[in-house]
Amino acid sequence: MTKKDPKLSESELRIKYKEFEEEAVPHSDALYNYALKMTGSPDDASDLVQETLLRAFRFFDKFEKGTNCKAWLFRILKNTFINDYRKVSKEPDKVDYDDIQNFYENIKSTDVKSQHFEEDAFSDLLDDDISVAITKLPEDFRTVIILSDLEGFTYEEISDFVDCPIGTVRSRLHRARKMLYAELYGYAKDKGYVNEL
């Protein structure tokens, strides 16, 4: 819910909204897609984006023009997610890194020995398979892979977003991709797109 800003007249409010509409609203799709992957629910994602945009509007005069508006909006979304959603939402079952690491090493060992890489194995997977696999990643890993590979954030921007050193971002991203690869490999194998190990 917005809170009334008693200092703004209606015309001032309209000017502020026009600037907001030009600068912030174009990033709403990116926010929604991120929210969808973080919450796993279209309703929660809608609520989360709505709340994020309202908070961003309230503080839009604090946003430094010319700086990275998308990164600023994502920070607000992250805080809103942590405060309002993560604590109440039931997390789906997550993959365990150690378990999946073993599976990954198995695939790797076979592929490296046979000089074979299933480059096209995933091309027949559905978007939904990929979305489900991303949603199953633990939150820290899911965050970095979405920001990097879907939203195009740099390591520095991700580091600022997750409050971690760049080395940690790189490490999480490395593991996240391996986990996702192993997970998708499993899907592709089930569907007969890759040969049995």
Binding site: K108, F117, I130, I145, L150, K178, Y181, L184
Partner: peptide, 9 residues
């Protein structure tokens, strides 16, 4: 692996 996952996404 890293490259293919990135491109896939």
């Amino acid at each position: 692996v890293q490259n293919s996952v990135k491109n896939l996404l």
